[in-house]
Design a protein around this nucleic acid. Structure first.
Lengths: 357, 357
DNA sequence: GTTAGCACTCATTCGGTTCAAGTGCTAACA
DNA sequence: TGTTAGCACTTGAACCGAATGAGTGCTAAC
């Protein structure tokens, strides 16, 4: 019974062994198993004593008296923070990632989807990604297209080449020629601006200069702002891959558990909550079970990190899997993939942004 | 033992009773159950005889000798084709559908997604919809935007107001002013055309008239065609709702079955196969178990129908659920929702198409 | 043609036994 | 004092056989 809370070296080794084993088997680990596998020339009885200590300290739990031990959240925490071996991806994995991310993808969202897809294939867990938020993005081009007397189609291209569109419903009646004229004016006046720059002054200015209807200008600008800021609302669009991987892990073969998982994965607001960017840039954030603070996923762990371009476009990618996740593997995969993704983003949009500023 | 294969009235009644019951309970149905519930003043022994006949004729099956009977695919087929009562949606359901489809949706795909969503909520099964195919659609507007010396963004608006975009990679180096000029020319020349009209002659014509680079024109046109025809390739984009409803049905609580279902639902090529438009316009197509001809879903039934606008835009919506599906309810829901959807599409795009022709 | 009655089948349930894994504790040992 | 062998004890899982009961098919009588 160590009277301080610091774990001595041997306890650490034992804890690590238990967790390594548990991650592979999902079965409670007994003292004999560790005694046999561990390099420490130590009997099972001694290990039993140590395990009792570790349980008392809160690193391990016992499903029932005659079963082996299972890691607690605190145990996993310790494991992730200071016990686990770092892992390296195999040559094949690195190649697989590169091949699937480099080059041939033109669209921002397709790239993100692909990154998510790659992560779930490499890790064998479920991966989630949120679409990038681009509130600080500049307007490259705005175009209004006459649809019918009551509707105008607004197409917006941001500096990154993202294309958004929406339909504007008119109060009055419009003529194609008018719409086209306003379209030209707006394109000229708004190009290069960020959403924040769209304000009442600007409307006045344009109105004065060109004599365009104030109401119409107002609804168009509102629409543009909404269209961009949709991306920026508290609910981002979410991409998922490998949800069925959950069935690979015995603790979720029970159909109630699986169901709970799928139900959770459909709840966008909750997914968004776990996907809030955490920590500093480039940091990989690990949350284990109850640390997530959402009851529905207290049996899971999530590993998230954010991708970005400069500081004006940000999104999050993550992995969700059982608490006994292969943390080393997931972390190294996420790290590498995020870097590749960032590189790719830089390639796609990097230079222009520098150039434009 | 009726010597002809035609079922007499009583057998039909019994078969219908059994299937009605089985749909509700998913338990094999015994002769006593039917004797008690049925209006025919007939003893269980007689029903036993009839059931034996029905089994011999292939309408029923017996999981094991001491169990009740279960409908066979042939039984369900008979039920769907001529036995079942038609159902009517409740006032609340009709209202729910109207409220969720009418008005307030601007975008084509959002409307389809919403229809799929509504179907899964009304039926409590999984619903699937394919994005509309629009190969015969006309070009309303084409625009090229200079991105950087090697890339041009092409934005295409179809007559229905669908916005598509893609990035064109250039061989040579382009100047913004050139791009803009070509953009104007193309917009003028291509507006109102269908994809099929984009051919080599047209390229020559434009080249002659404006002296634009042939290579460049060619790659832009290819891109436009590809962009529209993507929609028309053998793999449409698929929208799904209510996949987790599968857990509601006891025959799929077994996690292997659930897993098989989810695995299937991820296989786009298979979903596309079951979603091929069947039968005539407005027809509701029911396929039961093995009739689907895809092993992975031989435990399911699917009900599909297509939505359309004129004859140049078509997509399919469907429901997938257990073979013991509530066919009457699903069929009436699909029927009503498809009609609402078509009305909505007509409202969105109907008049203009007439006008443009 | 219908039905009562009965012997038979067979999946499911339930209690009890055994089994094996694992523990905690004690006592002996280095 | 820390380590270890040994042992009694706990407990979930697996196995087994009997009882249960839903349902059948068949026979014989109506």
């Amino acid at each position: 019974m160590s009277e301080h809370k610091e774990l001595d070296e041997r306890k650490k080794q034992i804890l690590k062994s238990i967790i390594d084993d548990y991650i592979m088997t999902a079965e409670p680990i007994g003292s004999r198993t560790i005694a046999k596998k561990s390099v420490l020339g130590i009997s099972s009885a001694t290990i039993r004593n140590e395990m009792a200590d570790l349980e008392e300290m809160g690193y391990l739990e016992q499903p029932h008296t005659s079963a082996g031990r299972v890691p607690s959240v605190k145990g996993y925490r310790m494991y992730v923070d200071s016990l686990m071996d770092m892992s390296v991806l195999t040559k094949d994995e690195l190649l697989f990632i590169k091949e699937n991310l480099e080059g041939r993808i033109d669209r921002l969202v397709d790239l993100i989807k692909q990154a998510s897809n790659v992560i779930s294939q490499i890790t064998h867990y479920t991966s989630v990604a949120t679409a990038p938020k681009i509130s600080k993005s500049k307007i490259r081009n705005v175009q209004l297209l006459y649809m019918d007397p009551k509707r105008v189609l607004m197409i917006l291209v941001t500096n990154e080449g993202m294309v958004k569109h929406s339909t504007i419903h008119l109060e009055g009646v419009a003529h194609p020629a008018d719409i086209e004229r306003v379209s030209r004016i707006l394109n000229e006046k708004l190009a290069g601006l960020t959403v924040e720059k769209l304000n009442v002054q600007l409307i006045h200015e344009i109105q004065k200069e060109f004599g365009v209807s104030k109401d119409f200008l107002f609804s168009v600008m509102m629409d543009i702002a909404k269209t961009i800021q949709n991306e920026n609302s508290n609910e981002s669009e979410v991409f998922m891959n490998g949800t069925t991987n959950i069935f690979k892990y015995q603790e979720f073969t029970d159909s109630d558990k699986a169901r709970a998982f799928f139900d959770f994965m459909q709840r966008n607001e909750l997914i968004n909550r776990i996907m809030l960017p955490q920590g500093e840039k480039g940091m990989i954030d690990v949350k284990i079970g109850s640390e997530i603070k959402i009851d529905e996923v207290s049996d899971f762990s999530i590993v998230t990190t954010s991708y970005s371009l400069g500081d004006y476009m940000v999104g999050t990618i993550g992995v969700i899997g059982p608490k006994r996740m292969e943390y080393p593997k997931v972390i190294s995969a996420m790290d590498y993939i995020t870097k590749e993704l960032n590189k790719e983003l830089e390639k796609m949009f990097g230079e222009e942004n520098v150039k434009d500023d």
